[in-house]
Structures are given as C-alpha cells and as structure tokens.
Design a protein around this nucleic acid. Sequence first.
DNA 1: TAGATTGTTAATCGATTAACAATC
DNA 2: TAGATTGTTAATCGATTAACAATC
Lengths: 213, 213
Amino acid sequence: MEEKGISQAVISRLPRYFRYLGELKDEGVERISSQDLSELMKVTASQIRQDFNNFGGFGQQGYGYNVEYLYEEIGKILGLDKEHHLIIIGSGNLGQALANYMNFERRGFIIKGLFDTNTNLYNKEIRGIKVQPMEDIKDFVKENDIDIAVLTIPKSSAVGVAEQLVEYGIKAIWNFAHVDLNVPKGVLVENVHLSDSLMKLSYNLNCYELGEE
Amino acid sequence: MEEKGISQAVISRLPRYFRYLGELKDEGVERISSQDLSELMKVTASQIRQDFNNFGGFGQQGYGYNVEYLYEEIGKILGLDKEHHLIIIGSGNLGQALANYMNFERRGFIIKGLFDTNTNLYNKEIRGIKVQPMEDIKDFVKENDIDIAVLTIPKSSAVGVAEQLVEYGIKAIWNFAHVDLNVPKGVLVENVHLSDSLMKLSYNLNCYELGEE
DNA sequence: TAGATTGTTAATCGATTAACAATC
DNA sequence: TAGATTGTTAATCGATTAACAATC
C-alpha cells in the first residue's frame, strides 16, 4: 500500500468509492468491473482504474475488482480501521447535531468530549457525554488521547481556540467556523464552510436562471 | 458582467474572496492590489487577477481594486443581492442548527418553512417558524415562492423526497443526506457530505502519521 | 512623465481520458 | 485458448502560473 504524493483530487473521491462499494457489498454483489462501476457512479472507468492504482493493484485482469476486498482496502486507506477520538468544541445546535450523528461512531470516530463557554450547557448530557467548560480541554486532551478537535464555535473565537488546541497537541481540526485557521505545518485542518457551499448553490441558481449553463 | 462557462474551480473560490473583502471593508481598507491580497489569502496574484477577469474588469491599472466595489460585485455574482427562500426538510438536530444560523439570513437566504415526518416536532417553533408535516410541502412551495430546499433527512428517504421536490418545482437542493440524488437536468444539487469530509481528514491524519506529506 | 498594477496572452503544470499491452 | 478487464503508458484537456504590454 504505497501512498506517495497522492493528489487531494484523488483523496476527495475515495469516500464516494467507499460509499458505493459499501452499498454494493450490502446488496451482495461480489465483483465489479471498472466499466460497470463507472456507469453506476457516472465517472470514467479510466479514472476509477487510475485512482485505485495509486494505492497498488486491487483488481485482477479479466475479472475486475472484488467488492468486499476493495471496500476493506479503501476503508484502510481512509484510516477507518482505526479508532479516532474526537472532542467537539462548541456545543450549540451544530455541535449537538454532530454529536448525535451515530454514523460517525460506526466508522470509528468516537466522540469523547463536548465543550462550551456557555455555563447553561454545563452538565447537559448528549448521548451520555456531559458538556464541560472550555478550561477543561487541556487536561481532557492529555488524558483521553484525542486525535481530532471539531470546531463548532463562532468565527470570532475560532482562531484563538485553534491556537490553544495546537498547544495542547491536537493534530487535526475539523473546522466549521467560517474563518481560515492559521496553524503550524504538521497540523491538519479540514474546513466545512457551509455558507461557501450555499453561495455556490446560489451562484449556479442565478446563472442558470439567466439561461446559461 | 459576462458569465460564460466559468469553471467550478473559480466559483468555489468566490465565497472566500467575498469573505476576505468583507473583512477588509470592515477594517476600512479602501483599495488593495492583487499582490497584497495574494499575500493575505495565500494564493497567487495571477490567480486572483485571472479569477476576477472572468467577470470583467473590476480593477484599475496602477491602482488595484476598490475593496467595497469588488465586494459588492462579487456579492452580485454570487446572487447575494437577491432574496432566496428556503425550506428545511428534516427538522432534527442538523435542520434546527441550520435554521438557527442567523448569518444565512443576513446574506438573503430566508428560511420560510420547516418540515419533518416526526409528529412530536409538529408545531415546535424554531425562530418563529413552526415545524410542519411533510404532506404540506407541496402547497407550501407553491404558495411561498421557494427557491431552495435543504435536505437534512436520512439517506433512506432522501432520494424519494428529492424526486417529489423536483415535481413540486424546486430548482435547487442543498443536500446533507449521504447519498447522490438523481435529479433531472436543470435542477441543481449542492452536496454537503460531512462524513466524506471527515474521512478526508482521517486519511490525511493517517498518512501524515506514517511520515508522508 | 514615471511608477504601479491591471488585463491578457503565453508557458507550464497537473489531472483526466484514451489506448493498448499484459495477464488472469 | 479466447475473452475480459486490469495496470500503465501516452495523449489530451483544463487549470494554474509566469510574463509583459497596456494603461491608469
């Protein structure tokens, strides 16, 4: 499983492959050719083969790909065979929504702690986890082997909190705050900028209405 | 403002430009060169000029770009000068989180209705809007000039509901369900696949730990 | 006018697609 | 063996970057 300089374009497509293969597996499909998968997913067979070959040969000439094997391998590439420990910082609506989303846990993303500045939320339980004050993050991270911090706080405090998290040794931030975090090399940030996504939709809606493609 | 065949790569960058320009405007900055903006945003000045020139000449040689003017123009390109009427389908945690997010409204995205299958939620009010049963969507869309439907329901029902929405005349779907919707040409879908995003983070975390870039 | 900086063309780079030899 | 389909190289396409003439 050589993984050298894989482009983010390829990485971005892996979860979608994983999803389709999971569905095929559940349907009891044993094998699939790049051609058939390409028709299902509406991408080129060439791209599928190129993508998979970044990670070594998963297929077999004349046969295609074994669905279950490929599903497992992509899961491993995505790190879904490992447990990840998350804390959610900002336990408002969005933080709670994420905490309640069971499917993350199914994939090994375990939510260990919830934090907020709002004293009214303290000790509120979400799926058995009590909301704690922000001051407790430092010790909690140390004691609970936390991989990933989820930032669901307003943009005004996000940059500062992110800096602190880096100090505490957090290596990955899933950032829902609408601001670019400035973290040192070696710390990962994955942004989910919801309003950017909505604006894109608005743009396309707009230019479509003007009769353009 | 000619907008012919602008690539999605460019569109995806517009909201970020808009955000930075808004901040500059709030700080009272009057003008900025592509060079200065490039240092701020960590992209090339070339890309900035190319991007803006897709929509016509917003700058002035020897001067740069007027921040407020550019901000306004990009806003218009993104359709933020128009009002958009949204309904949220699925009033669970995520739907409520989105309904409560004030900033969308500030940009002209007005949430008009909330829907759910769960009878326990009926008449629950979120920011003054009562949750209604799914059966009421059809008439509501007709009577309230709805542009965009936000899908925050489980994947199992998302495909079916999307089909109905298309029948009711919805032209844009902001899809949070973890499934690809199959809609006819002319209907827009913007996907927010949260678990895909989390998996990407997991991949990068994983390959970083293995000592790779 | 001289300096600055855009708008735009040309060069480069990377990603996607096509083609086909290798091989199951 | 013949047919199917991958793995992989080569060709194409598109996006990014560099360069510079136009012009404020």
